[in-house]
Nucleic acid binder design. Sequence first.
DNA 1: TGGGATTATATGGGCGTCAATGGGTATATG
DNA 2: CATATACCCATTGACGCCCATATAATCCCA
Lengths: 153, 153
Amino acid sequence: MDLFVSKFFNKIDKKGRVSLPSSFRNVLPKANRNEIILYKSIKSPSIEGCGVGRLKEIAKRINNLDFFSEDYDDFSTSIFSEIVTTNVDKEGRFLIPEELKLYTGIKTEAAFFGQGHFFQIWEPKQGLKNTEDSRRRLLKEKKSLRMILTQQK
Amino acid sequence: MDLFVSKFFNKIDKKGRVSLPSSFRNVLPKANRNEIILYKSIKSPSIEGCGVGRLKEIAKRINNLDFFSEDYDDFSTSIFSEIVTTNVDKEGRFLIPEELKLYTGIKTEAAFFGQGHFFQIWEPKQGLKNTEDSRRRLLKEKKSLRMILTQQK
DNA sequence: TGGGATTATATGGGCGTCAATGGGTATATG
DNA sequence: CATATACCCATTGACGCCCATATAATCCCA
């Protein structure tokens, strides 16, 4: 599977290390399994992460916005300048930067949520609540959800 | 036959393993017979499952939504983080995640119901009751049922 | 075509490997 | 030199792989 899926709850040890879920590590290209990028989510108090290869895709999406709009500058600044690269050690663990811990409220445990081509890291309780809220909002729009889930090729 | 059809009742062993019905395994593409995806049904206390190929189509559709919209996050969260991938061993068995067991009430036995392009897994009693209820509802609308069954291609 | 032989499926269990986690020590970087 | 981080090793429990068996389905040949 080459997508980030499912959710995982991992502990942060005394040294601040946390395991990137094994199935997430396998999504990263074999060449760059020891490096990921992290940045603050624009829409929620969570961290978004992915392999370094995805940077190009993010750049493309931002480039598709109108260059002279305020959004362009805002997204460009908010995302690129906030990106940090982090090394994953041989056991698959990495350090969550202090600033991102503060931003998310993460203390002793981190919740990883697969999002397809990237993943999110949440303070566990907030992350679970977010999942419920999302699901509730979508159930109000059954039709569109069914479209995504059941459409046949 | 390349569709999930019929129903099967299989036991869950001490290790939590359960056999995916043989005829279901044969529906999966030969290349990916050792991995399936599972997710909570939107409409009932059951699990829905299918091959990983279907997930990739779903990913493509979500990816086409406006990346910076709220809908994107809702779909992405509700689908990707709720989906779990499970490995099917050489004997055709897999593990039902604890959370999905709780969601469905499955304990020692699992009922598999073919649904065409996907299948459902129910706690046996509830699954049978659901079948009866479905049929009863359909019979109230004989006309539309006949339409579906007799329509020629 | 009947009945024994072969194959497949569902199920049970042993055991090695890997993932998550903990901690000691070397190394780097300011 | 002090703090942070990378590397190495250890532990534990879960899971995958392998082998085994019983029952059911299929085959095959006299």
